[in-house]
Design a protein around this nucleic acid. Structure first.
Length: 549
DNA sequence: TGCAAGTTGTAGAT
DNA sequence: ATCTACAACTTGCA
């Protein structure tokens, strides 16, 4: 049996079967032309390696891919092929071997992913393959939201974004998985793949195959099992807590960054970031719930608003150049942060959880072992590294978060680092998180700190947030001598934050932005950029409208 | 041009 | 628990 053609579905940040527009498109194209549908996922050596991606996220990805492979097998007898290669390198070969007529995938909007997709499309040009792309990661087709702006520019203010959403109405409802119905999808004949060098990648590799040292299961990683079923299960579980009251009354600033056992937030971000959970499905279930309950006034702080932050920041990230760094970024203030050699020891202490501030070090330990930190915990970490204490460039912190966070997301990571470092969105630089006061507010007894930093376990609660204040004999009794068992404070927060507020004042007075050429002062308005943005290659006629009730 | 608001500050007083 | 001073930013709207 020989292959006369095929439809290739390329899974990326859409690791699910439900409400997957690109996948349904693949299925209908395959059914229409009676061709086999071949689903693939790539483990790209450039990204899926121990240097670029922490083990906790890598494990989540592998689990999500395994789970997807199982689902596709059970639902329609299809076999997801996991290929270890750089997509631009391998695609021409795949297209030839599998006689691919159509290549289908979901849009991605971050610069490196856009560049990769462009390279793939360039490399298969001339091979007689049609490339079909679908929007699906965001709630709305971004072009539709942009259509409703005055100047085609995404707003930088949440309140303005809410106006856009108001005019747009609710996003489209989630759609059902289209596979598994009659006629069954034609499976790709095995003979075609025999002796194929791609054959050896039919099963999902484990961590050690990918060069990770500790390939064994670690109990600390059990917080986030990857996969679509798990994501949906967790969503339903959260939405049904106390008959829906918890979700309806949810107010982000009231949830605790120190709740490490009985968490108060949804913990769904990893599932949303990798597409195990569809944002439209979550949105639709939330709307249902909000109709039955009186919800809080504040749209930004309630659960629905959390999805809107994601939407808002992605709309901005996709239309704004260099969103993930200062240079060339028109909305990011130019601030003379410590970088390179100057930043090195400070960055190192922060990243290795050795700042001498238990709250900060505990949060960093949580990040590294679990790949997740509560939003307010991220605030503490980010403020401390940048404008609060260490004056290190937010881009350095960005990279550390990118490495360790399971829910790493280009737009959210960029926007939040700019926010916390007062580089964009937020300007009240004199409001500084104290690593002691903020910790006392949420972790009065020091339980969170002791959980992540066992060396401090015997220290009296009185000194848990400030071990350097404990008398020498108390430190010795607790087996935790500052400077020996636990690091000295890297800075005096009181002094450092005052100095840094003054530095921020100077930076603000200079009024320079990342896109300004050196020394050039901006008079008024935003720097203009005419570069094509991530959404500009898509005709807006595809935008759909569904008025909210 | 003036004024209000900005998802989630702190320290100290009441 | 709720207030006020701290020192004072930007954006959006009237």
């Amino acid at each position: 049996m020989s292959l006369s053609g095929s439809v290739l579905h390329w899974f990326r940040r859409d690791l699910r079967t439900g409400d997957n527009r690109a996948l349904n498109r693949s299925i209908s194209l395959a059914e229409k032309s009676n061709l086999p549908l071949i689903p693939v996922f790539f483990l790209d050596p450039e990204y899926h390696n121990p240097t670029a991606c922490g083990p906790v996220r890598m494990r989540f990805v592998l689990e999500a891919v395994s789970s997807l492979q199982q689902s596709l097998h059970d639902k329609c007898g299809s076999h997801l092929r996991v290929i270890c290669a750089r997509p631009p390198d391998i695609f021409p070969e795949l297209v030839r071997r599998w006689k691919v007529n159509t290549l289908v995938f979901e849009y991605e909007y971050a610069p490196s992913e856009r560049a990769r997709d462009e390279a793939v499309m360039a490399n298969v040009q001339g091979l007689d393959v049609e490339v079909v792309r679908e929007h699906g990661f965001m709630l709305y087709n971004p072009n539709y939201l942009l259509q409703n702006t005055k100047d085609g520019k995404a707003p930088t203010k949440m309140s303005s974004f809410f106006t856009l959403v108001d005019e747009a109405g609710d996003p489209e409802e989630p759609i059902e998985f289209a596979g598994g119905r009659e006629p069954e999808l034609a499976p790709c004949p095995d003979e075609v793949l025999k002796n194929d060098k791609i054959d050896r990648y039919l099963s999902v590799p484990n961590l050690s195959d990918l060069g990770y040292e500790n390939g064994k299961r670690d109990k600390r990683w059990e917080h986030f099992p990857g996969g679509e079923q798990e994501g949906i299960k967790r969503m339903e579980e959260f939405l049904s807590r106390e008959g829906g009251k918890v979700a309806a009354r949810f107010s982000k600033p009231d949830t605790s960054p120190a709740a490490f056992r009985k968490r108060e937030t949804t913990l769904l971000s990893p599932y949303l970031a990798l597409g195990c959970l569809s944002s439209r499905m979550f949105h639709s279930r939330l709307r249902e719930l909000e109709e039955n309950y009186k919800v809080a006034e504040m749209p930004q702080t309630r659960l629905w608003g959390q999805l809107m932050w994601r939407e808002h920041f992605w709309l901005l990230a996709g239309t704004s150049p260099e969103f993930h760094r200062m240079d060339g970024n028109p909305i990011c203030r130019r601030i003379d942060w410590h970088t390179g050699k100057e930043a090195e020891p400070l960055l190192k202490a922060w990243a290795e959880a050795k700042t001498g501030y238990p709250w900060i070090d505990a949060l960093m330990t949580q990040l590294k072992t679990e790949g997740f930190v509560h939003h307010l915990g991220r605030h503490s970490l980010a403020c401390f590294l940048t404008r609060g204490d260490l004056w290190v460039s937010w881009e350095e912190g960005y990279k550390v978060f990118e490495h360790y966070l399971i829910d790493y997301d280009y737009a959210m990571n960029s926007a939040n680092w700019m926010w916390l470092s007062c580089s964009a969105f937020f300007a009240m630089y004199y409001r500084v998180y104290s690593p002691v006061a903020f910790a006392k507010k949420w972790d009065k007894e020091g339980k969170f700190i002791k959980h992540y930093l066992p060396i401090l376990r015997k220290l009296p609660t009185k000194y848990i947030h400030e071990p350097w204040k404990a008398p020498k004999d108390v430190q010795e009794m607790a087996g935790c001598v500052v400077g020996k068992d636990y690091p000295e404070r890297i800075v005096d927060h009181g002094k450092a934050s005052k100095e840094n507020i003054a530095r921020m004042k100077e930076s603000y007075a200079r009024n320079e932005y990342g896109a300004d050429k050196g020394g050039h002062k901006r008079k008024n308005g935003k720097a203009k950029s005419s570069e094509p943005h991530a959404y500009s290659n898509e005709p807006s006629s595809k935008a759909k409208r569904q008025k909210r009730k």
